[in-house]
């Protein structure tokens, strides 16, 4: 039983590590504040939640587990509220969201060579 719990916790911590690392990479890869916030919600929400699930698997007794469940529920309420406040401030201060450049309109005229702009920025 103890080995199963340890393995479950290790899997949860590994998932948390992957999401945290990729979220950090996305923070530098994405072009504008809104897209960066999606990447940061990857490490701010999913990674933290996975760590808490791992801690729940390792909980030594039922009262610790109950406390962890209460903390998880509070986290599910407070984390998106904080993210929403940041996003709402960015939106209200008029930051324009980044848009993928439109693909060349081939049915009107063939684009000049060297004018191809791809969809990835």
């Amino acid at each position: 039983m103890d080995t199963i719990r340890t393995i479950a916790a290790l899997v949860a911590f590994a998932v948390a590590w992957v999401f945290g690392a990729v979220g950090m990479v996305g923070l530098y890869r994405f072009p504008d504040p809104y897209a960066k916030m999606h990447a940061s919600s990857l490490c701010g929400t999913t990674a933290v939640f996975s760590i808490m699930v791992g801690a729940l698997a390792l909980a030594p007794s039922w009262d610790v587990a109950a406390r962890l469940v209460v903390i998880i529920v509070f986290f599910l309420v407070s984390s998106p509220t904080g993210g929403h406040i940041v996003a709402r401030f960015a939106w209200n201060s008029g930051i324009d969201p980044w848009k993928a450049p439109a693909p060349p309109r081939r049915w009107l005229r063939r684009p000049a060579p060297g004018h191809e702009d791809g969809a990835d920025g």
């Binding site: 809104y34 916030m37 999606h38 919600s41 990857l42 929400t45 999913t46 599910l76 309420v77 984390s79 998106p80 509220t81 993210g83 929403h84 996003a87 709402r88 960015a90 939106w91 209200n92």
Partner: peptide, 15 residues
């Protein structure tokens, strides 16, 4: 529902 949309990565409620 606004919180649930923000909680799932990939969608953020702006307003």
């Amino acid at each position: 529902i606004a919180n649930a949309i923000t909680l799932t990565p990939g969608t953020i409620t702006l307003d």
